[in-house]
Design a protein around this nucleic acid. Structure first.
Lengths: 188, 188
DNA sequence: GGCAACATTTTACAAATGTTAAAAAATGAT
DNA sequence: ATCATTTTTTAACATTTGTAAAATGTTGCC
């Protein structure tokens, strides 16, 4: 387990000692494409790091699903409300490809946070990086039109464009699939 | 200083000992309405907690300012990119009223993070709470129309509606001021 | 291959929001 | 109180995006 974690980007800042502590509570799991890994309205007990594969987080609306997050290899993957507030959340997480994930029980992770200074700061940085990425998206929505957001997405996530259904990308970008289709047609 | 911090919500989870460590590097400052407390494109060396007053964070666009955050008494206030990445950021923070703030030098705060387990976890929770609030807003943009977002804002932040210019609230809600005006007219 | 299921694009029309400009209202300074 | 400045509202029109439904394209399975 230790040698697996060592090769995942997010664990690289950690000392060997901290990494061993995390490895001791980590487990490698595999799931198939289509698996719902986390359910909205449930308190989810696990924290995951995506080792290979692609995932999306989405919420169910009245007559639509909104995808608001994609994760690729190296991404951390958890139910925000379970992790942060120990409450059921609003997001489902679905694997879009067969995936391998590092699984850590939240209670184990929290226990390490409360014992281990370096791991606590590592957890702080995880939240901070997610925060800055989310804020960035909120601001982009204000300053950029849908066409520019699409172009940015293509440039920044070329893998996702190839491997993820456009209907998911449309809602991620904050437009309907029809609008995304129009944007793509205009760009040919 | 210690006795001031004790009465601010965000410090309440902390032990007396941790609070003293923070108090030792905290300073109370006052600034007038209109002060730009943090500038985009500068690495800002301070972290603030708003003791009294109101602040907004905004970015400058081509022919508009977009407000994307409001803080009231008890809010933490820092330049995301300075705090998280030690880089210049994209947000200006302006005080909308005369305000009193607790000021902590980032280097002091980071030093405490790297020494003090409880404070490191306190800092983790600050980032996590900001994260969940930001994600919530992104999702609300997808599921709720502008009129509903306005109604929610009125309910959740009655103080801000009274004390903040509508042009700032309009961009916070993701609409133009004209649209906000129409929404308000329809609600009479 | 051919069918079924699902994804994407296209079309026509409707609704929401943006833009610009001007009028009205509110605010602040003297 | 009055004037200048700023904020908010209103109006007319343009644009963008959404909705619904049909057409086309793609994928996987028997």
């Amino acid at each position: 387990m230790y040698s697996l974690l060592k090769n995942i980007e997010i664990f690289k800042p950690l000392s060997n000692e901290a990494l061993e502590r995390l490895a001791a509570v980590s487990k490698l799991v595999e799931h198939q494409k289509g698996t719902i890994l986390l359910y909205a309205d449930k308190i989810e007990p696990y924290f995951y790091i995506l080792e290979s594969g692609i995932a999306r987080a989405y919420s169910d609306g009245e007559n639509q699903q909104i995808t608001f997050w994609f994760g690729q290899s190296g991404a951390v993957l958890f139910s925000f409300n379970s992790y942060i507030n120990n409450c059921p959340g609003y997001e489902n997480v679905e694997l879009l490809e067969n995936s391998r994930l590092v699984q850590i029980r939240l209670t184990d992770l929290f226990s390490l946070y409360s014992q281990h200074l370096e791991i606590a700061n590592w957890g702080r940085k995880i939240a901070e990086q997610e925060l800055i990425a989310t804020e960035r998206r909120l601001i982009d929505r204000a300053f950029k039109g849908a066409a520019e957001r699409y172009r940015d997405f293509v440039n920044q996530s070329p893998e996702l464009i190839k491997r993820v259904a456009l209907k998911h990308i449309a809602s991620y970008l904050g437009v309907t699939q029809v609008t995304l289709s129009r944007i793509r047609a205009a760009h040919k």
